[in-house]
């Protein structure tokens, strides 16, 4: 009996140690990041493609989309997330971060202090990007206005309030390979990069499993609105009948083929994406139609 107990204890310790190792925050290889330098103008396009402002602007109505003071609340099944201040303020924002720290935050979901970020932050998508693009983004974001609003803590339920548990979530769900695979045209590939790595369309338009990971088998099929009433519409499947022209025009102007005008949480997405070259919007449209095949 004593032997058995000892055996259980040993297995428990080994299991706990394995979980601890498995849940450790992992950063990018230093050689991946060495020699990257950012270009502000390139970074501006990455900023608009990545939609940072959609979540990180102030909660006030009609807030300035370039002041990333944070404070917006995002309700979920796990509790309420509050977007942090990511303006270049040295105390309350990211003003003292290095480019390497920034890229690890955005692509690996690891803070400069070595803690996990929750996957409400779509590093789950950004992890597929070319790190060079986020070196550009870093250069641009450091030129934005600083704001001294303190970041607010999330309000999460147990066990989700244990940050280390995010490491296990990452081990299960964080993938940097493409979701839509097979034969893609050059335009569809560009659209895939923009959508799956930067613009993170799927984060709202794809349903999630019980642990909050995207269901790749129901890609773009629409999902409950996580932060309010109604649904985020499907952009694939039988009920979605838009053409490439329709999708590109919508991202450029906010007008649906029926001439309804964009609203809700999609309005800031359009306001951001409409700054991209029209060819980039056409590429996203081509990819979305390809993804729905």
């Amino acid at each position: 009996m004593r032997k058995l107990l000892l055996g259980v204890a040993v297995i428990g310790v080994i299991g706990g140690a394995a979980l601890w190792v498995l849940s450790a925050p992992k950063v990018l290889d230093a050689t991946t990041l060495a020699g990257l330098s950012g270009d502000i103008a390139e970074g501006e396009a990455i900023f608009h493609a990545s939609g940072c402002g959609s979540c990180h602007i102030a909660p006030d109505r009609d807030a300035d989309p370039l002041i990333l003071s944070g404070g917006r609340e995002f309700a979920s099944d796990f509790g309420t997330f509050v977007a942090p201040n990511i303006s270049p303020d040295p105390e309350h924002g990211i003003g003292t971060w290095t480019a390497e720290q920034f890229i690890n935050a955005v692509m690996q979901g690891v803070s400069p202090d070595g803690e996990h970020y929750y996957p409400a932050f779509p590093y789950t998508s950004y992890t597929r990007a070319d790190p060079q693009d986020f070196a550009h983004l870093y250069a641009f974001m450091m030129t934005l206005p600083a704001d001294a609003t303190p970041s607010q803590p999330h309000d999460l339920r147990f066990p989700f309030n244990i940050r280390r548990s995010v490491g296990l979530w990452k081990a299960m769900f964080l993938r940097d390979d493409w979701v839509v695979t097979g034969e893609l045209s050059a335009e569809e590939e560009r659209g895939r990069y923009l959508s799956e790595a930067l613009s993170h369309c799927a984060e709202c338009h794809t349903p999630r499993n019980a642990l909050g990971a995207l269901d790749h088998d129901r890609w773009f099929l629409g999902a409950p609105n996580p932060s309010g009433t109604g649904r985020i519409p499907a952009i694939a499947g039988e009920e979605f009948t838009w053409t490439a022209f329709d999708i590109s025009a919508y991202l450029e102007t906010g007008l649906t083929p029926d001439f309804d005008v964009v609203g809700g949480s999609m309005a800031p997405v359009v306001r951001s994406l409409q700054n991209l070259e029209k060819s980039e919007l056409d590429a996203i449209a081509a990819y979305i139609l390809r993804a729905g095949q």
Partner: peptide, 20 residues
């Protein structure tokens, strides 16, 4: 035409819920 769409969007963003 453009500014009319912008005016629609400003209101829809603040005051219209997602469709169900």
């Amino acid at each position: 035409f453009g500014p009319v769409g912008q005016a629609c969007q400003a209101c829809h963003e603040a005051y219209r819920d997602e469709a169900s």
